[in-house]
Design a protein around this nucleic acid. Structure first.
Lengths: 346, 346
DNA sequence: AATAGCACTCTAAGTATTAGAGTGCTAATG
DNA sequence: CATTAGCACTCTAATACTTAGAGTGCTATT
């Protein structure tokens, strides 16, 4: 190893430190690294390299006589520059495939199966956001009379999401009118994204006059029913129990704060929504996260798409000390598969 | 206190031990009890009573020089004979009411709000089972064409549960036939419980002959679509994070087993299903539970009803050391309210 | 530049000590 | 006779003390 570029060696050492620390959760000593390289370098040399890496703030000391562990910056460098892309094994892929196809009948199950799939393969918590209603595309609407004053609206989107909501009509609109409205909407809104519907109808409204005007207005009233297009974006997560086995969560108070953070859901939702604007795999490491509850955690996210349109996001969360390679591949693969499954059932 | 029936005193002491232990989680000494009775009895006397209670296996010693704590039998006696029924405060009731009415638009939210309501008020985990499909009553069915081969079935029950499921038709049944089938079913099945539908149709089938026979057979095929009446009974639970604050869960390994137990869900479902056959509030204390993961926990369950028919169950789970009075009232009140809310939206 | 050697540091695990909370028993008391 | 005071005894949990060993950083050597 003598004639290797010094920077190359630094990289290798950092890599070894990360790998070893991820595996054992113990600060890594120079002896260990030396052995990892089959003694082709002495511990003393490794110590010198380590001193350099520490100066670069890529690794740190918990105390004088302890080994080194990666800093957030260290992980960042590892993820950006050292990690070569890997694929899940055939077995792992088939676990995901089976789970998704088995549970795809019902939307709720599919979401839960997806988050469970990630957590099973990566051993960290899996997170799945339901398809954003606003990004989904209108497919069909149908009104079903429940009793004298109430109507069940069934809205079908291209993501296979069927949204039921009950409307109180109070006799403003007759049944026959409602039937005409549904015919009109089904014809008119084909292929329009739910987020654009109101704008679209408003524009139509301005173009029209007289007799059709009132009809359109009623149609608009119906489609604007608060519960119908209301965001009920939900965060599914699973696998927190596996997380509790990590030494990082041995302090139950910390574990509790973390769980509360997930249970609360708001911040998770915001984070994922923000990430959804960007393409590809996103990685947030430790202190890079603005929420203090998860500053010792890392989050990996990815979008899933239907017909090349991003409609939702999946991800994983666990301690900063995680197997980034595997988690990234799992999140990536799942996002792809979930898109496909949704496309099939949509 | 001298001239009080000796049994009466034992009861009071047991009661005091339970109350104090529930509050502090520390074994209760004779001094403490004596003070609780404003020194009307001396610690020595209390010690004698305690010795009796211990002989009856209602309380125990963790070790010689520690105070007493209730045994499972002790809690059982406390719950059955000592606890007088209490009501939630107006504030607590209004917390439940607000939560349920605010989240009642959508079924999933309602279930989650219910479990959260229990956990918020009792500080233990709240559990809610979705209305059993088989116990619900048929209200309306509608078929919506999705594409050439698939049909979305929308089944509405009296519990407001709207069940969507997709059917692959493969041209066995024409659209017009399907329409006639829905009209037939809507007319015929009014008021029949979903669990009885198959039997009912089979009976009808045997009565009929010739032309109508084939029609009935197709109707039956449709209603028997595996995903339609398939049990997808689900367990909602919330409030596990509050649970983690209890000293009982300071051992993270135990906490993990417990969480896994809930996450798994199967055993919870079985337990609640079994309890559903019985009326009123059911209490399972510690070792009375057959699942070893929860033998240091107690479970309180109650049914909820629509039109006097039991269709589901709610409950709470926490450490045996819980405020039984409050938890029982909360579960009881919630089950009542949930039934009402479901009746309203059904 | 790489390595061996060595003094030095710090933790974590094990051991010892001790204060005090609480008991159970016995004898005294109204 | 039920109740109580007194007292010796027990056990825990907290604190302090000790020590082995893992690992470093520096210096001298190859």
């Amino acid at each position: 190893m003598k004639d290797i570029d010094i920077d190359q060696r630094r990289k290798k050492v950092l890599c070894a430190i990360v790998d070893s620390y991820v595996e054992t959760a113990m600060p890594v000593g120079s002896r260990t690294i030396s052995q990892r390289f089959r003694r082709s370098v002495s511990p003393a040399t490794v110590r010198n390299v380590m001193a350099d890496l520490e100066e670069m703030q890529l690794i740190m000391h918990p105390h004088t006589s302890a080994g080194r562990m990666p800093t957030d910056r260290g992980y960042r460098f590892y993820v950006d520059s050292l990690l070569e892309p890997e694929r899940l094994t055939k077995e792992e892929e088939s676990v995901i495939n089976k789970l998704l196809t088995r549970e795809c009948r019902d939307f709720d199950s599919l979401m839960r199966a997806s988050s469970r799939a990630i957590s099973m393969i990566t051993n960290v918590a899996g997170i799945v956001l339901t398809p954003r209603l606003k990004r989904s595309i209108f497919k069909h609407i149908e009104f079903i009379s429940m009793d004298s004053s109430r109507v069940l609206t069934v809205l079908i989107t291209n993501s296979g999401l069927v949204k039921n909501s009950v409307m109180d009509l109070e006799d403003e609109i007759s049944r026959s009118e409602l039937f005409r409205i549904s015919e009109f909407l089904n014809h008119e809104l084909e292929g329009i994204s739910l987020g654009d519907i109101k704008d679209y109808l408003t524009r139509r409204l301005l173009e029209q006059c007289d007799s059709f005007y009132n009809f359109l207005k009623k149609a608009m009233l119906v489609i604007s029913s608060p519960s119908l297009l209301r965001m009920d974006d939900r965060v599914y997560y699973e696998g927190t129990t596996s997380l509790m086995a990590y030494p990082e969560f041995k302090d139950i108070a910390k574990a509790r704060l973390f769980l509360r953070f997930l249970e609360e859901g708001k911040d998770v939702l915001d984070l994922f929504n923000e990430d959804m604007e960007k393409e590809g795999i996103k990685v947030h490491i430790g202190k890079e996260n603005s929420c203090k509850e998860i500053q010792e955690c890392s989050i990996i996210t990815s979008n899933y798409k239907i017909q090349h349109r991003t409609i939702g996001a999946v991800g994983a969360i666990g301690p900063t000390r995680m197997e980034y390679g595997k988690v990234i591949s799992a999140v990536s693969y799942l996002s792809e598969m979930l898109g496909k499954v949704l496309e099939d059932i949509g």
